[in-house]
Design a protein around this nucleic acid. Structure first.
Lengths: 134, 134
DNA sequence: GTAGAACTTGACGTTGACGTCAGAGGCAAA
DNA sequence: TTTGCCTCTGACGTCAACGTCAAGTTCTAC
């Protein structure tokens, strides 16, 4: 398929697809006239790329990971980087969860004013064990 | 406390603190000579701000939410925006989880080559119900 | 064969959360 | 009073993932 179809099927802009190619994370065949052609699998590939971006990975990191993903193998140094990113994602997910809980609490408080059944605070720490209010 | 102490205690740069003030999400008292002074509570406030940033909220959004957080109340329109952000965070967390699982799978495959006990694929969709390989 | 949609490369613009540098002033200790 | 660190206000720099023109080429449908 050509770039326009891939863009609409993967729900990204054509600009993004060309950018991915620039960054070396998406390849394409070229017709004699220079137009890009993609196989069906490119749709999933683009979605994977989008997901990695959403997980906070940058183009360089993605570019270094994709070959391993395709080959399903990686050297020990690469594995360490994978583990590091995985840890970052885990931490990031925990932060998201907590921010989400705080918003939930606020929504609860704001949507049902007067009902004081939630004694938790909205601010304060997240990993603080220091409890000494007096 | 002055800006330097707050910065080190909240683990952000002084530049960030001044930026927060510019954006109207962190206030300070001023000494006659113009230096900023913060109460103890500013540390938690800054951490809350950091957490909201980490959750993908921008300065404007945070600026609009903080008064509600302080007052523990919000109008119906604001509650809608809170719910919307909460939904965004939930979706974002799900994406993170899935990206994390994919990395886990790759790490597993790469760290223990030859052991083919995980038949799942690394690419492919996340919410696709279309199953028609023929 | 021709209009018009889709494609090409190239290059500058955008946005957000700061980093960084410059020049000037403030403050506590010696 | 001088030393040295802290703070102040601008103001420009940065980086990433694209957006957005511009000007030209190619494909498709009639």
């Amino acid at each position: 398929m050509r770039i326009g179809e891939l863009a609409s099927r993967a729900k990204v802009s054509t600009r993004a697809l060309r950018y991915y190619e620039e960054q070396g994370i998406l390849s394409s065949e070229r017709t004699p006239s220079g137009q890009r052609h993609y196989p069906e699998s490119a749709v999933d590939r683009v979605r994977l790329i989008q997901q990695l971006y959403a997980a906070g990975l940058g183009s360089r990191m993605i570019a270094s990971f994709l070959p391993c993903i395709d080959a399903k193998q990686a050297g020990p140094e690469m594995i360490e980087r994978l583990r590091a990113e995985r840890a970052r994602i885990t931490a990031s997910a925990a932060e998201l969860e907590e921010a989400g809980r705080k918003l939930d609490l606020l929504i609860e408080l704001a949507a049902h004013p007067g009902k004081r059944h939630c004694p938790a605070s909205l601010d304060a720490q997240s990993a603080g064990g220091d409890v000494a209010p007096a």
